[in-house]
């Protein structure tokens, strides 16, 4: 069994929106990310998947629970250890237009981490920038240009080069391909797969495109309104989804084969409830076609129902 690089234990992230309004974006979530794997995180808007990713890399302060990185609790690290951990955990953002400073040259954007950690200077720094540009499929002469001179796919490559600059071990990719055209998405996904191999990276890959998540991930977690609903190997998840929400989510993916398009589909009724006022018991019960009485009263616990296949659903209560 591979070693766990990141362990999340009962992690909570609450946002207080006013006196009595609290959004529990991430509510009591526990799971582990193994060294070298790509862990896919899916969920619809408002499920808390991005908040979870940002909390793990420290862009949000956790409201409770703990994050264990490389065997050590992040909250209890010394200042120097914290610096190293921060360097090793990087993030790639969704919008390649908003996440690059339009007034900085691409070379300086990529070297931001190098400069902040005072890793390299002068000629060496320059050489490292060129090397990173080539690594992500751009050219050394691009270092002198500004972000607006690049297309969306190229900008996402710049974002990836910036994350790679400090030699990270763990990268949270927060919807890295959602803003890109279909033909460019495959380019970026292939690049990320190659880098995982050559640089020995571990990814938390957040997306709502289930097809791409299945393609790139070893294991997948499904979130709904701040809760983890199901977690398993990615093939297992697609062949044998246990939670009614996962089943509906998978059946909602439009099939790119017109012959298969005429199939039975689980149609969910209504919209997801407001995260400020989630339903009692199981949060999915208001849209669940199989909801029982117990679902309104008791919150289902997240447990291992089959080997390496976890879910939070009363249907699987022994």
């Amino acid at each position: 069994m591979p070693k766990n690089l990141v362990e999340i234990k009962t992690l909570k992230k609450y946002f207080h929106l006013g006196k009595d309004v609290t959004v529990k974006s991430v509510d009591d979530i526990s799971f582990t990310i193994r060294s070298g794997e790509t862990f896919g995180l899916v969920g619809e808007s408002g499920s808390g998947k991005s908040t979870l990713g940002k909390t793990i890399v420290g862009l949000h302060q956790a409201s409770g629970g703990e994050i264990i990185y490389n065997g050590k609790k992040v909250a209890e690290l010394s200042k120097e250890e914290q610096r190293v951990a921060n360097k090793e955990m990087q993030i790639i953002f969704q919008d390649p237009h908003a996440s690059l400073n339009p007034r900085m040259r691409v070379g300086d954007i990529i070297a931001e981490g190098i400069d902040a950690y005072k890793l390299l200077k002068g000629k060496q720094r320059e050489r490292r920038i060129y090397e990173l540009l080539e690594r992500v499929g751009l050219l050394p002469e691009h270092a002198k240009r500004y972000p607006h001179e690049f297309s969306g796919g190229q900008r996402q490559r710049i974002g990836i080069a910036r994350a790679l600059a400090v030699e990270p071990k763990f990268i949270v990719a927060d919807e890295p391909i959602s803003a890109l055209d279909v033909s460019i998405q495959a380019q970026v996904v292939n690049l990320m797969e190659d880098l995982a191999k050559t640089e020995g990276l571990t990814y938390l890959f957040i997306a709502h495109d289930l097809g791409m998540v299945k393609h790139i991930s070893d294991r997948i977690g499904v979130m709904y309104l701040g809760k983890m609903m199901e977690l398993s190997d990615s093939d297992d998840m697609f062949q044998n989804p246990l939670h009614p929400y996962t089943q509906a989510l998978l059946s909602a993916i439009p099939k790119t084969n017109p012959k298969m398009a005429k199939r039975e589909r689980i149609m969910l009724q209504g919209d997801p409830p407001s995260p400020t006022d989630p339903p009692s018991g199981c949060r999915f019960r208001t849209r669940c076609p199989l909801a029982m009485e117990v679902c309104a009263k008791v919150e289902p616990s997240f447990k291992e129902v089959e080997p390496n296949h976890w879910t939070a659903c009363h249907l699987y209560d022994a």
Binding site: I184, Q185, G211, M212, H215, F238, Q239, T256
Partner: peptide
């Protein structure tokens, strides 16, 4: 057609981007 992953198979094919 080639740049979209096929969700119906479990074999890992590399995507063919344009």
């Amino acid at each position: 057609l080639q740049s979209i992953p096929d969700t119906d198979t479990s074999e890992k094919k590399r995507l063919v981007p344009i």
